[in-house]
């Protein structure tokens, strides 16, 4: 088969896009923006019990300039909103955002004068995780779905966020359909 037959088993040929996607999806560098109890749950996701390093996303960077996956874990107030926007802007392309938990996704039960009602008012979100706080398995689920998204799309799509499909972890509509059928 092609070039491999001449070069033997030690060499694999592929396209540049594929190898770049393979690298990106298996070495996501997360930047945790933890403001509440979801951040504690994210810590246990990184810990050896759940071990997010099995999926290559364990190198937590506390500098947005070295990260490509923003995990917003916790309540975001209007006082914090410019900080979150700035951190997102500091991250190099391509970048992905996980909105972890009820507060980050919708404001949660903080329906009041000071809380942003979902961080998608501030930054584009790729994956929403339900829960208060979500289980670490749900966070790993979101990371796997983002890896699938990176794998499925061409490199040119990473810059066009409007065309990206949203990921909803904990959305039980599919489960309900199965139960009904």
């Amino acid at each position: 088969m092609g070039l491999e037959s001449f070069l033997g088993d030690s060499i694999i040929t592929t396209s540049l896009d594929e190898i770049v996607k393979w690298g990106r999806k298996n070495s996501l560098w997360p930047m945790p923006f933890g403001t509440a109890c979801c951040a504690i749950e994210y810590m246990s996701t990184v810990s050896s019990v759940f071990d997010v390093s099995r999926f290559g996303a364990e190198l937590v960077r506390f500098s947005p300039r070295q990260a490509d996956l923003l995990i917003v874990a916790g309540t975001i107030t209007y006082k914090q909103a410019p900080i979150l926007k700035r951190i997102y802007a500091q991250m190099p392309e391509p970048k992905w955002v996980i909105s972890m938990g009820a507060c980050a996704s919708s404001g949660g039960f903080y329906d009041n004068y000071c809380t942003v009602q979902g961080i998608d008012q501030l930054v584009p979100v790729d994956a929403y995780i339900a829960g208060c706080p979500p289980r670490p398995e749900a966070v790993i689920d979101a990371i796997i779905k983002i890896q699938e998204m990176i794998d499925g799309q061409g490199t040119e799509l990473t810059h066009d966020r409007s065309k990206r499909a949203k990921i909803y972890i904990g959305d039980d509509s599919e489960m309900m359909k199965k139960a009904e059928a």
């Binding site: 209007y78 006082k79 909103a81 410019p82 900080i83 329906d111 009041n112 004068y113 000071c114 809380t115 009602q117």
Partner: peptide
């Protein structure tokens, strides 16, 4: 609250859901 906030939120005549955006810290 932030420095661009107008009003005092725990006064009983402040609307609970009146949100005020902040442009810069």
């Amino acid at each position: 609250t932030h420095h661009e906030f107008i009003g005092h939120p725990l006064r009983k005549d402040y609307p609970t859901k009146k949100r005020q955006e902040l442009s810069a810290n």
